[in-house]
Write a protein that binds this DNA or RNA. Sequence first.
DNA 1: AAAATAGTCAAGTAAATACTTCAGTAATTC
DNA 2: GAATTACTGAAGTATTTACTTGACTATTTT
Lengths: 111, 111
Amino acid sequence: MQADTVDIDRLFHALGDTTRRAILDRLCEGPMSVSTLAEPLGITLTAVAQHLQILESCALVRTEKTGRVRTCRIEPTGFDALDRWIRTHRTLWERRLDRLGAMLAEEDASS
Amino acid sequence: MQADTVDIDRLFHALGDTTRRAILDRLCEGPMSVSTLAEPLGITLTAVAQHLQILESCALVRTEKTGRVRTCRIEPTGFDALDRWIRTHRTLWERRLDRLGAMLAEEDASS
DNA sequence: AAAATAGTCAAGTAAATACTTCAGTAATTC
DNA sequence: GAATTACTGAAGTATTTACTTGACTATTTT
């Protein structure tokens, strides 16, 4: 497993959870504290902090503590990595499907 | 949780596993049987079949049994759903970041 | 300085996940 | 028709995951 693979693993894992996607969606409204973020989620502050650690570990969120308040905001870096993965794989898959299509067309022509 | 959300949950979960991504990558070479697919993975046929069920349940793979052989191939439907999710969210996030940028610019101008 | 607020840390728990083994079944091949 | 091949199904296990509680620290507010 290469270094790059680990990141993609973490990214997909991070995004595979409804609560974490809800946190990301919420952060689209703008930067906010952990408590504010937690309020409508119906889970403990501790749980939210745990989710934030995961989101931060794959560069989907950035947080910064000032005084007693930790402010969270969206970080596009992780998102870019995901986008790159998708683009690469879409290309590979489409190339494959194109080849398949060409093969079928050839079969048709020769029948 | 809406129907759409369930699908995205399953998609990300499916892609968050190294073995399943390896299966997808392998299937770029073309359609192949479960045994052929399993051979270089170093896990049992049963485990591979379980992964395939997951990949099939979110339309990343399509399989078809003829005789005693089940042939697996890539299915772009699930991939399209993922791409849509990414595009939508990229837009939302970028819009937010633009607003932030504008706010910072305004601050600069007024100081 | 006392009380309230915002978050953190450690430990525990229930459920989910990625496997396994072993015993089938159905389709080929010899 | 006997042996082999390709897969399927049920059941079990170790690990991970998403949470919880409760005790703690550090920062504001009063």
